[in-house]
């Protein structure tokens, strides 16, 4: 199979000509988004109201962050099934650290720091585990992250005894959820900042470019003298670190540490990245595709909610959309090849 992937991936790297056809194809998703919004708006005028648009933006910012995290590893032909449980684990860990810091009488600043430190430490530890198992032990990313998926779920439920962890201080929720920067709600502002930073990292730095090379042709990357293993470990740490940030934002939103917070997030984040046009064969995608995919899925489910489509039907629609999105993307690839 890997040989086949290699040849397919190699074809992608041929610089595509910017024909009219290709331009049209690359606009499929944004156009579909606009059609979707307008379609929902004809059924329910509330869809296009400023309040709902802000709501969509806010909801998207979480999924976009997780899709970006997933994109970083997918670029290198990996993925992170453990992202959801990592989110749960970080949420529980952050809340527990803050609760115990508050209980031992520390000031608000120390409490915040303790929470952030615990959260990011757990996230980075999970990323290190994934990275070391994938890069150094050579275990398939699916199995490696399925393993840490189970481990993280176990840790999250054990730490919390399966119950929500109370004691998240108000300033924490203020900073990461209800507050705003220049009038932009915190979640949107943070995701924007991370998105810009990640885009620069992927597009402008040697590290970023090497991710694309590793995804397109790992052998070429190794021959070219890239420290592939070290880069892969860093990639998984970056992914889990971003997941930890998202978990902190979600914990601020719910106001408690939730052992079930991650739930279906792993697969949702993969779906977001892939629908946006990130290739599971590696080497193709970026911040733009992640945000676009997350926006698409959020608008779809928001619209279906507002037009009162049954939650179970929504699952069927989402499943179909994921397959169709990837199918369209493959056709687009074939055209450009």
């Amino acid at each position: 199979m890997s040989d086949l992937e290699l040849t397919v991936a190699a074809k992608d790297t041929d610089r595509p000509k910017l024909t009219l056809g290709r331009r049209l194809w690359s606009a499929v998703l944004p156009v579909a988004l606009a059609v979707l919004l307008l379609g929902f708006a004809t059924v329910d005028h509330g869809v296009l109201s400023p309040a709902n648009l802000l709501n969509i933006a806010q909801q998207t910012s979480y999924l976009a962050l997780f899709a970006m995290a997933q994109t970083v590893v997918i670029l290198t032909r990996g993925f992170d099934l453990a992202l959801g449980p990592t989110v749960s684990m970080v949420s529980v860990g952050t809340a527990l650290a803050m609760a115990s810091a508050t209980a031992s009488g520390h000031g608000p600043a120390a409490v915040l720091l303790a929470g952030l430190a615990a959260g990011f430490a757990l996230g980075i530890a999970c990323g290190l585990f994934n990275g070391v198992v994938v890069a150094l032990l050579g275990v398939n990313p699916f199995v490696a992250t399925l393993g840490s998926y189970n481990i993280a779920i176990g840790i999250a439920t054990t730490l919390s005894s399966g119950r929500p962890v109370q004691g998240v201080p108000a300033p924490f929720s203020q900073i990461f959820y209800s507050g705003s920067i220049f009038g932009v709600p915190a979640a949107i502002a943070i995701t924007l900042a991370v998105g810009v930073g990640l885009h620069l990292l992927l597009a402008r730095t040697v590290f970023g470019r090497s991710l694309y090379l590793i995804g397109t042709n790992p052998r070429a990357a190794a021959v070219a003298g890239l420290p592939v293993k070290r880069i892969l470990v860093t990639t998984y740490v970056l992914c889990s670190g971003l997941a930890a940030l998202g978990a902190i934002m979600m914990t601020a939103r719910t106001g408690s540490g939730e052992p079930n917070l991650g739930g279906a997030l792993s697969l949702q984040a993969i779906a977001g990245a892939v629908v946006g046009g990130t290739s599971l064969a590696g080497g193709r995608g970026g911040v733009g595709t992640a945000v676009l995919g997350a926006l698409f899925i959020t608008i779809l489910s928001n619209g279906m909610n507002l037009t009162r489509i049954d939650g179970y039907v929504q699952m069927v629609v989402l499943g179909a959309i994921v397959i169709i999105g990837v199918l369209l993307d493959r056709l687009r690839q074939e055209r450009s090849a």
């Binding site: 993969i270 929504q314 069927v316 989402l318 499943g319 397959i323």
Partner: peptide, 19 residues
């Protein structure tokens, strides 16, 4: 259709659960 097995079965998983 040559869609990756991971994505296809991810999609049918969601759809099947929904049904």
């Amino acid at each position: 259709l040559k869609v990756s097995g991971f994505v296809v079965t991810l999609g049918t998983m969601s759809a099947t659960t929904g049904v």
